[in-house]
Design a protein around this nucleic acid. Structure first.
Length: 856
RNA sequence: GGGCACGUAGAUCAGCGGAAGAUCGCUGCUUUCGCAAAGCAGAGGUCGGGGGUUCAAAUCCCCCCGUGUCCA
């Protein structure tokens, strides 16, 4: 990065000078006389015991001081965003404040909710999980305080100079940090294809803040200027609080008395881990993470299990639920939503604790059995076994060792080996731009006025063509709903041409026609939307909201929508839940939604300022994913459910008609999928189902209510028939065996051995069963011929130790070009089609006889 | 989203290329006034589903489905 990027007027105005750090070699700006930048490792921690700010702040005071500082300097204060980044599909969690605005605001697609703005964003990072408690400064959940500005060519808010000035003013003016203690270190920042200069703000050994200026797009080796430049800052709330108190570790400063209390039972590291995990879990669970074995749920499970293992070490330790509760009560002062659904949260956690117990018990049994087997066979349990158990059973090696009578040593690099096992996995991204395959529209084309938001009932309209290319047409206004928000596209006609797909691209709605459009810019066209399809989609969409509301009511507020699809045939909704739905819960949900339908509640759709909507309804608005626009479209089912949603909806619940849930699946640990129908489709499906029932009943010859009995009867009969057939076969074979044994001379004597030789109309299995009957006593050999799928088959069974069946088979094999083998007691040979079976039988007889006489 | 492990009798599991097993539970009989217990006998399996390899597959290979677990 060019040094001139950092040559800020602010630095010169204030008398900063630029130096190269004697430690890391990087350039930095300072008012002091340091020869090194003031960050670890170039500078040791100097603030422990010597707080660097004017006074000591608590977490809350520090947050408030920060936000107010920027508020009084023209920034709008924003409430926190959820810690689960549902609006993105490239990450699970909000890891920094800028995540709140990616990708739509930072790409310029949507205006920022405020500009400039300030926020303290709870963020989750699991990269340094092992460092939590150990380093004295790491957390899985931390608050990133920030001020952001988004600059367009036509609207410059502020950039490097003013940003740095604000930061300096905060540190020196507001917090009374010695201005000479600060260093602004030059660092290049790059991420997501963008880059720009950044300043790392250090003092007394601690990195207090990072000021990032997103300015360029990497285009091969060249840099292109971004149309929208972004001020992205990050100030660690915990770090600021710590530095203001100068305690030994950040945990004392952040957790306060809760830390002191836990320290009576646990060593410092464990106390810090427990409090950190409790805090992170409260945010995660409140924001709708349900512990599970995949995706974001796994991280909740990880924290729960780590905490449980620590708690299990001390008999006088609090219960996990109590620990979480205590943490939630404190957090609720600043984040009221964290205290709101404690009982539901308890149920989620208790269910998770139970599952952990089951997993441990299962693992214990498996390991115990394995240990017994090793003990009896003289085998040894290896370190590889420990690895395997950790990976597949979830037993940490120290726990596994406790179960073993002769445990192996746990390798020092155990977790490295675990990591190595997972090394070859390439991270895959299914991030597909919704605009893929769509044409580029010139920026000069006026945006489409979307009318379906205002009136979902109008299905015929006139509009003007503003752009046309291939089969795509953009109109100045449209009632066609484009695929989005889980609702599939409208269909219909523009003029005489069929509209097969409608998509949204930026500010335009693209109508895709059945063939290249004969339209020209300026043409007036008549649009007609397929009304039946639209109605059905509206019914399914409103029904989805109704179900979501009912699920939250019946199962609890931990239920969040994780996905949805509304098609013309059926719709489905995926929600988080920690166990399969019971039949009763399902019935309750179905009854409840149909009740709301009958009550004919109003469904209001309107736009509202984001902050106002959040204040009124909370984050549960973002069921379909949070869109960080300035204005939200709110769909409110009066007194029942409120969501931010861009879909077309009925205006009264009665229009939805009946709702029928067709299927319930657990599509993933922690996620339940309901497939359902409403409106006309519900009636159709019900008719179909009734017809199926009637037909099934007719075929069984029972009335519909007796169907289950009828099926039981039928199954009983099938089983009986099978039993009888099996019995019959057994009898038949028994009769053959008995006849052979009784017939004089049928059993050929060879020394002590009795040989039974014969050809039967039996296949391999039949021969095998017959052989079994003939060789129930010792010193018998059965050499039986039959046919399997057109091939001559020989089966040899033996209870004579001197006459191994396998040897007999081998002797017979060449006689009819056969293949086969077996063991001493049983063997099979199958010949080529048409090969002389009789010769093979004779060869086998001779061989068996020879062997018998040789030993006799 | 990926890796690994697992899916066999009502339950818990063994078997891991050659003729489906153990323990508990169940049924009957013996014993007992009865119960428990013991002894004896018996019933109960498309070895998750579908393909393939093989003379032969619960067992090996592939694809699904389900469960668990680790990791992102």
């Amino acid at each position: 990065m060019d040094p001139s990027e950092y040559d800020l007027a602010f630095f010169h105005r204030e008398g900063f000078h630029r130096r190269d750090c004697a430690g890391c070699g990087r350039a930095f700006w300072t008012l002091g006389d340091h020869d090194r930048c003031q960050e670890a490792p170039c500078r040791e921690y100097g603030f422990i015991g010597h707080p660097i700010f004017g006074r000591s702040y608590g977490l809350r005071e520090m947050r408030e001081a920060y936000l107010r500082f920027f508020e009084t300097r023209g920034h709008t204060r924003l409430r926190r965003y959820p810690t689960v980044a549902r609006w993105r599909n490239d990450v699970f969690f909000t890891q920094a404040s800028i995540y709140d605005f990616q990708p739509w605001v930072t790409s310029g697609a949507i205006p920022p909710p405020a500009n400039p703005l300030t926020i303290s964003q709870p963020s989750l990072r699991f990269i340094d999980l092992e460092e939590v408690g150990r380093s004295g400064r790491h957390f899985t959940l931390f608050e990133m305080m920030a001020h952001h500005a988004f600059n367009r060519p036509d609207h410059e808010v502020y950039f490097k100079d003013r940003c740095t000035e604000l930061c300096h003013e905060l540190l020196v003016g507001e917090l009374q940090l010695d201005p000479r203690a600060i260093t602004y270190k030059e660092e290049e920042w790059e991420g997501g294809g963008n880059l720009g200069p950044s300043l790392s703000v250090g003092a007394s050994g601690v990195e207090l803040a990072t000021l990032v200026f997103m300015e360029y797009i990497r285009d091969g080796d060249r840099l292109k200027a971004m149309p929208l430049t972004v001020v992205d800052t990050g100030y660690g709330l915990e770090r600021f609080t710590w530095a203001s108190q100068g305690t030994k570790t950040a945990y004392e400063a952040v957790f306060g008395s809760a830390y002191d209390e836990l320290r009576r039972t646990f060593p410092p590291r464990e106390a810090a881990i427990l409090l950190d995990h409790a805090r992170a879990l409260n945010f995660m669970l409140t924001d709708g993470v349900v512990p599970s074995n995949s995706k974001e749920g796994y991280f909740a499970r990880l924290l729960v299990r780590r905490a449980l293992r620590l708690l299990a070490k001390a008999p006088e330790a609090p219960e996990l639920v109590a620990l979480l509760d205590r943490s939630a009560r404190e957090l609720a002062h600043d984040f009221p939503e964290l205290g709101m659904h404690r009982e539901d949260l308890h149920r989620v956690v208790v269910a998770e604790i139970e599952r952990f117990g089951e997993a441990v018990e299962r693992a214990r049994q498996t390991i115990h059995r394995y240990d017994e087997r090793m003990r009896s066979t003289g085998g040894k349990v290896t370190p590889d076994d420990l690895l395997q158990w950790y990976d597949s059973l979830g037993v940490p090696p120290d726990l596994a060792v406790e179960e073993l009578s002769d445990p192996p040593a746990i390798p020092d690099d155990f977790y490295r080996q675990v990591a190595a096992r997972h090394e070859c996995e390439a991270p895959t991204s299914d991030y597909v731009e919704a605009t893929e395959g769509l044409p580029d529209i010139p920026g000069s084309v006026p945006p489409t006025e979307v009318l379906y938001y205002l009136d979902p009932y109008t299905v015929a309209f006139d509009a003007h063509v503003v752009w046309a290319g291939g089969p795509f047409v953009v109109l100045d206004r449209t009632y066609f709903y484009p695929t989005g928000g889980g609702q599939v596209t409208d269909r219909g006609h523009l003029g005489d041409l069929e509209v097969v797909e409608v998509d949204r691209r930026g500010p335009w709605v693209l109508h895709r026609l059945e063939r290249p459009a004969p339209f020209h810019v300026g043409d007036r066209v008549h649009g007609r939307i397929d009304p039946a399809r639209r109605t059905q989609l509206m019914q399914h969409h409103t029904a989805t909201h109704l179900l979501n509301g009912a699920l939250r009511e019946v199962l609890g507020p931990h239920v969040w929508q994780t996905g949805a699809y509304k098609g013309p045939e059926a719709a489905r909704i995926d929600v988080t839940h920690y166990r399969p739905l019971s039949k009763e819960e399902l019935h309750k949900v179905e009854r409840r939604v149909n009740e709301i339908v009958r009550e004919d509640r109003r469904v209001k759709s309107y736009f509202e300022a984001r902050g106002e909507a959040e204040r009124r309804f909370g984050f549960t608005l973002y069921q379909g994913g949070a869109v960080p626009g300035r204005e939200l479209r709110i769909v409110e089912i009066e007194g029942f459910d409120v969501e931010a949603c861009g879909g077309t909806h009925c205006t009264h619940t009665s229009e939805v008609g009946a709702i029928g849930i067709l299927e319930v699946d657990r599509i993933q640990d922690g996620v339940v999928r309901l497939t359902f129908v409403s409106g006309e489709r519900a009636l159709d499906v019900r008719e179909e189902h009734e017809e199926i029932l009637r037909e099934a009943a007719r075929r069984l010859g029972v009335p519909v209510p007796k169907l289950p009995d009828g099926i039981d009867r039928l199954l009983g009969e099938v089983e009986e028939t099978r039993r009888v057939a099996r019995e019959r076969r057994k009898e038949d074979l028994g009769a053959i065996a008995a006849r052979l044994e009784a017939t004089e001379g049928a059993g050929e004597k060879a020394g002590d051995v009795t040989l039974f030789v014969g050809e039967f109309e039996l296949d391999r299995n039949g021969l095998m069963e017959l052989s079994r009957l003939l060789t129930r006593s010792a010193n018998r050999v059965a050499i039986l011929a039959g046919e399997t799928e057109g091939r001559g088959t020989l089966f040899i069974g033996s209870t004579a130790s001197g006459v191994p069946a396998r040897s007999v088979a081998e002797a017979a094999r060449p006689a009819f070009d056969g293949k086969g083998g077996g063991n001493p007691s049983a063997a099979t040979v199958v010949g080529e089609p048409g090969a002389p079976l009789a010769a093979a039988l004779e060869a086998a007889r001779k061989a068996a006889r020879g062997l018998a006489l040789a030993t006799g």
